[in-house]
């Protein structure tokens, strides 16, 4: 049941690459995550749904320790990281977190491109300075990924000259340049004008179909249905229900999931 599938696993999935164990997170006295165990397999696209305040974004941020969990552990590609909130400033701890982050690319709601660098410079900054890739190689791979998101022609622009959708696509290219084992998307389209959402979802869908491992926090139901291997529904800091999108979205078993979907449909109507 850990896998999140009742029956046999979908054939294209590989080994478990991301694992979380008993993740709990308090903000002050606010108990936001109440023990989350999640397993994500290679080439799997997992979409996390849930009401705001259900802890889905916090969970995502805990996976790469942008928020250090209060209790629990995360494992990405064999590197296991225990939460150690008492020693957050410890240098060795920080270095281990950094190693964990190198295995996970993250996309943010508001893109967070570096405004003082061109698109290309955004893409090669971390590869050249952190991974030690040669400049030529970094540029070549940046151009490949920019081409993949359809923005090679913007390589010398500054982010300010791009639309929101273009910014998010550049951010995706930038993350891919680090060759991460998994991509974490934190509501990547919620800051976008409606007409720009499609272009970003399209890129994400392509990535999912090509077998990129991804964990996506989103409100885009239609997208989840199309691109997800598995939908995880969160409520009050725990995973309430999970399974293939048809099962969760069409035949939810839990009351929480039903309520959420009903309200969601009403909002859309």
């Amino acid at each position: 049941m850990q896998s999140g599938y009742d029956g046999p696993l979908p054939a294209h999935l590989g080994e478990v690459i991301v694992r979380t164990g008993g993740i709990e997170k308090y903000f002050g006295d606010n108990h936001v995550l109440r023990g989350v165990d999640l397993e994500v397999r290679q080439r799997e696209a997992v979409m996390i749904l849930g009401r705001s305040g259900s802890g889905k974004t916090t969970l995502l941020r805990c996976i790469n320790f942008l928020e250090e969990p209060t209790v629990g552990w995360v494992e990405i590609d064999g590197l296991r990281m225990e939460a150690d909130p008492l020693h957050q400033r410890n240098r060795a701890h920080q270095e281990q977190i950094r190693q964990l982050r190198l295995r996970a690319g993250m996309l943010f709601q508001d893109f967070n491109l570096f405004p003082h660098m061109t698109v290309l410079a955004n893409c090669i900054e971390a590869p050249t300075r952190v991974r030690g890739v040669g400049k030529d190689e970094a540029v070549a791979s940046a151009e490949r990924y920019l081409d993949k998101v359809g923005l090679l022609n913007k390589r010398d622009e500054y982010p300010a000259r791009l639309s929101g959708g273009q910014k998010q696509r550049v951010a995706i290219a930038r993350a891919l340049c680090m060759e991460p084992k998994v991509l974490l998307f934190d509501e990547p389209t919620s800051a976008l004008d409606p007409e720009l959402i499609g272009e970003v979802l399209k890129v994400m869908e392509d990535l999912a179909h090509e077998g990129t491992t991804m964990i996506v926090v989103t409100h885009e139901m239609h997208f989840a249905r199309e691109a997800a291997d598995r939908v995880v529904f969160m409520e009050e800091g725990v995973i309430c229900e999970q399974g293939p999108p048809e099962q969760i979205l069409d035949h939810p078993r839990q009351d929480g999931t039903r309520r959420f979907l009903r309200r969601f449909l009403e909002d859309r109507a």
Binding site: N112, L113, A126, V130, R174
Partner: peptide, 17 residues
């Protein structure tokens, strides 16, 4: 903005960088 630092952290950049 805090997001700038977070984006850099998420890319695995060390603090000094």
């Amino acid at each position: 903005p805090r997001g700038q630092r977070e984006a850099a952290q998420a890319l695995g950049m060390p603090e000094r960088n």
